[in-house]
Amino acid sequence: MLSETESKGKLLPISFENTPWWALILVVLILAAATAAFFSPIYQDTVEFLLAGVKITIFLTVVAYALALVLGLLAGLGRVSKNPILYTLGTLYVEIIRGIPLLVLLLYIGYVIAPPMHIRNLMTRGILGLGIGYGAYLAEVFRAGIESIGKGQMEAARSLGMSYSQAMRYVILPQAFRTILPPLGNNLVAMLKDTSLVSVLSIRDLTYLGRLNVARTFRTFATWNMVALMYLVMTIGLSLLVRWVEKKTSFERR
């Protein structure tokens, strides 16, 4: 009875407090900027010039994140391992990389480590730097996720005759993965933003092309407006995607 009267009293499906006002304001801002870009030849020219950088930024994010996931998983497994060698290797990697600013790490890998190894491709240098850098953060995410799964799960799996790695693969990691999906998503968004640092390695990403466009046209205002907006659209789009994936995977557990 109560719920009936309640639903009748409501005019909108969502209440004032529950409306995502921040999202509405953002949409309005983005639409305003898009309209400006559509009608102003200055903005049109800027957007056209920057689009190539967007492609590079997305490509860098995807490939470097894949590398970071692999490195993070390996190092995270090392961090929870009882084997002293694997533990030491994992911990050394995490502690060293986390102690160096990402910008310095990129310069170091790009100009100190890559040249003697004959890695000439700038993109490869950037991907290595970002992947190795974020791998250390993801390692801690994986470690926390694995440790969040109760000891009883490993014991139950082992008591059935599974080896440590089988138990990890079929019992622990599938559960840990669900727990760490939100921090993994946050790191993906953070990495997308940090790809802007690779412009110091002369990779023609969005930020690099922004600087180039300013040097070329002296249109500082229009250029950085569009660069910031393009990053914003990408990160918000990615955040929404991550949220959707989270909802999808947590649902089937109920």
Binding site: E155, S159, G161, Q175
Partner: peptide
């Protein structure tokens, strides 16, 4: 030890079923 464990079943106080 894995081969021996496969021959010895264990039931725990907290069940320890795989929740996923």
């Amino acid at each position: 030890i894995n081969a021996v464990r496969a021959e010895v079943g264990m039931v725990f106080q907290q069940f320890n079923l795989f929740p996923h």
